[in-house]
C-alpha cells in the first residue's frame, strides 16, 4: 500500500482498506489453520508414539509377534525404507538430469519430440502413485524380470528377477519422481546466465566441455533441490511398493537387490489393518509412524545439508 492509500480517508480508499484487511485476515487464517493441523498431527504422533520408542524398538527386528508391545521392532523397516530411498536417488538423479540437459541444452524447443517429452513429464507428475505400482509390476517385474530370468537362469524354475524386489521398488519410485528432478534441473539450467555458456564456447570449449565443466557444477544446488523434493515425495509412499517389493514379514534383512524388504509405511498399513487387537497394537503403530516421520525428516535434512555444504564450497573455491 502506498503512503497515500494509508493516510487518505476518502470514501473509495476506505472500502479498499476494508477489503485489504479482510484479505489479509483470510490469508492469515488459512496459514494458521494449516499450521494448526500440522501441529495437531505432529503432537498427536509424538505424544502417543514417544512411549513406544526404545533402543530395542529401533535397533531390533520382530520376535515372535509383530503386534505385541515389547516384542516388536522396526529396524528392518528403517533399513528397507532407507535402502529404497537411497537406491531411488541413485537412479533418478542421473536419468532426470540427463533428460533435463537434453531438453534444455540440446533439443530445439519447437521440435515435436521435445513437446512430446514435456507433455509426458507434466502428465507423469499427475499420475496416482498406485498406477506407478501397477506399472512397476507390469514393466519391471513381468516384462524385464521375466526376461532376465529366461536369459540368465533358464534352468531355474523359481524366478529370481521376475518377482517383487528392492531393485524394482526403487526403480518404480525413480520413475514416479522423475518429473520432479527434471523440472528442478531445468529450472536450475534456465537460471544460469547465457553469457556463461558463451564465455566458455568462445574460448573454444566444446558444448560437452561447457556443460560438464561450467553448466553442471553451477546447476548442482538446483539439481540437489530436485533430489530433495524426490526424496520427500518417495519416502512416505506406500502404494508403489505394494506389488513391487514391500514384504509383509521377513525374518532377515534383504541381502541383495533382488530380495524383498520391509518398509515403514507399508508396516503402518499392516499394523492398522491386520492386527488381531488394535487397542494393544496402537502404541507400536504410533511408534512406527513417529519413526517414519523422523526418518523422512532425517533423509531430507541430510540432502539439505549436502546442498548447503556444496553451496558453501562453491562460494569459497569459486
Amino acid at each position: 500500500m502506498t503512503l497515500h492509500g494509508r493516510w487518505e480517508v476518502g470514501g473509495g480508499s476506505r472500502r479498499g482498506a476494508a477489503w485489504s484487511v479482510l484479505f489479509t485476515g483470510a490469508t492469515g487464517l488459512a496459514t494458521a489453520l494449516i499450521l494448526a493441523m500440522l501441529a495437531v498431527i505432529l503432537v498427536n504422533v509424538a505424544w502417543h508414539g514417544w512411549p513406544a520408542l526404545s533402543w530395542r524398538f529401533v535397533t531390533a527386528g520382530t520376535e515372535a509377534d509383530m503386534f505385541e508391545v515389547g516384542k516388536a521392532g522396526v529396524f528392518p523397516m528403517i533399513f528397507g525404507t532407507t535402502a529404497r530411498v537411497i537406491l531411488m536417488t541413485l537412479f533418478v538423479i542421473p536419468v532426470g538430469v540427463t533428460t533435463a540437459i537434453y531438453l534444455h541444452e540440446y533439443a530445439h524447443t519447437t521440435s515435436v519430440l521435445t513437446r512430446v517429452i514435456r507433455t509426458a513429464v507434466a502428465n507423469l507428475a499427475g499420475v496416482p502413485s498406485i498406477v506407478f505400482g501397477l506399472f512397476g509390476l507390469g514393466f519391471f517385474i513381468h516384462f524385464l524380470g521375466d526376461r532376465l530370468d529366461l536369459v540368465l537362469h533358464p534352468d531355474n524354475p523359481k524366478p529370481i528377477w521376475g518377482k517383487p524386489a528392492l531393485l524394482w521398488a526403487s526403480l518404480t519410485l525413480a520413475v514416479m519422481t522423475l518429473p520432479v528432478v527434471i523440472v528442478a534441473t531445468e529450472e536450475a539450467l534456465r537460471g544460469l546466465s547465457p553469457g556463461l555458456r558463451e564465455a566458455s564456447l568462445a574460448l573454444g570449449a566444446t558444448k560437452l566441455q561447457t556443460i560438464w565443466q561450467i553448466v553442471l557444477p553451477n546447476a548442482l544446488p538446483g539439481i540437489l533441490t530436485g533430489g530433495i523434493l524426490a526424496v520427500s515425495r518417495a519416502a512416505g509412499e506406500v502404494a508403489p511398493l505394494l506389488f513391487t517389493g514391500a514384504a509383509y514379514y521377513m525374518a532377515e534383512l534383504p541381502r541383495s537387490l533382488t530380495d524383498q524388504f520391509m518398509d515403514l509405511g507399508y508396516h503402518v498399513f499392516v499394523l492398522s489393518t491386520q492386527s488381531p487387537n488394535l487397542e494393544q497394537t496402537r502404541p507400536i503403530l504410533y511408534g512406527t509412524v513417529l519413526v517414519l516421520l523422523l526418518l523422512t525428516f532425517a533423509l531430507n535434512a541430510t540432502a539439505i545439508l549436502v546442498r548447503a555444504r556444496m553451496r558453501r564450497r562453491q562460494r569459497a573455491a569459486g
Binding site: S193, G195, L196, E198, A199, S200, L201, A202, L203, G204, A205, T206, I214, P217, N218, Q314, A317, G318
Partner: peptide, 25 residues
C-alpha cells in the same frame, strides 16, 4: 575446426562474464 578457430579468435563480451571459477582457473 571450431575449437581451433575460437582459440585464434578470442571474444570479449558486453557484460564482463568471468567463468564461475577462481581468477587462476
Amino acid at each position: 575446426s571450431l575449437v581451433e578457430l575460437r582459440k585464434s579468435v578470442g571474444m570479449v563480451f558486453q557484460r564482463p562474464n568471468p567463468l564461475p571459477l577462481s581468477v587462476y582457473e
